[in-house]
Design a binder for these strands. Sequence first.
DNA 1: GTTGCCATGTAAGGTGTTACATGATTTA
DNA 2: TAAATCATGTAACACCTTACATGGCAAC
Lengths: 179, 179
Amino acid sequence: MAIKYAILGFLSWQALSGYDLKKLFEQAYFLYWSGNNNQIYTTLVQLHKDGAVTTEIDHQTSGPSRKIYTITDEGRQQLREWLLAGPELPQLRQPFFLQLMWADTLSPVELDELCAAYEHEMAIQLLMCQEKARRNELDPARSDRERLLWQLIAERWIGFYTEEVAWVQRLRAELAGKE
Amino acid sequence: MAIKYAILGFLSWQALSGYDLKKLFEQAYFLYWSGNNNQIYTTLVQLHKDGAVTTEIDHQTSGPSRKIYTITDEGRQQLREWLLAGPELPQLRQPFFLQLMWADTLSPVELDELCAAYEHEMAIQLLMCQEKARRNELDPARSDRERLLWQLIAERWIGFYTEEVAWVQRLRAELAGKE
DNA sequence: GTTGCCATGTAAGGTGTTACATGATTTA
DNA sequence: TAAATCATGTAACACCTTACATGGCAAC
């Protein structure tokens, strides 16, 4: 359950409510959980049961009550053990490649349209990444080292989309050249 | 259900048994389904129910009987419609980045060990990709265009791991420089 | 007064993974 | 005769997504 560590990570930065976490997950392009992810609430209950977080209710004067979650030493320890257990491997799923593999029934025009649409989508993702990295809304920046890590993660993400765009452009050029 | 189209794709190339498909899925690094994926069998039953494939039993003289699946016109049509519906978007999950984001509790040595282990894993993946691309075991090659598509997909996969290795090397160098 | 945001949850479904089960044949 | 490979399947689980439900408060 990777989301467990994502939550513990954010809570290791500061105490947050489930709703706060949902907003952070939506904002952060480098996290892959989709918008409106209510798995967060059930995972928080689980973390509480496991003693990794404590919770207290914030009775706001304006607006509904919020449950604020705070990480415990036990939670910090679990996060640390996850890091020491070794690196997680990337899971890159490229169903578009599967489409290309079996796209030989398409006409040259249809195939180029498919690739052009993909190029367009990747260009949009790239712009969104760059814009979010530029605004730099989310950055705990507790140390130079942490700042560097976050910086490089953002760059890698931008790099991925940059290369994806360049690759599909090359693909389209080579397909056009073959006709 | 992306695996449905992966299966239809392979069957659009040639008639295969469930076991053949399992072997192909294990071989193909560009497919993300894990080894020993028995989802294949249930999906084949579903595809048969939907009329996308037909099946006949091959009573082998040596070895157990095999169920050979053949794609139908209906199946080919479904595959084509999937292609025409537009490109699927990549789903890149990088839990390692999540680890780095919250790795500030690690000592410089622990952090470098984590990154070194990641670099090593990515280097292995890269070598495996390159070796499989070199051997080129799986290649329908029904046309020049199809050959080009497969070639470029292999290159993009190699490119991803190449960049991942280069990125983590840069990360380690910058971290070492900060100490 | 109704739209929209804050805030928390439940339930169902899709998809992929892992473990288990079975039995035949080939090879060492 | 033991191990490996061929071949098909079931069951349980993990994880993520989607839809639904509820209710308060603010703004227009």
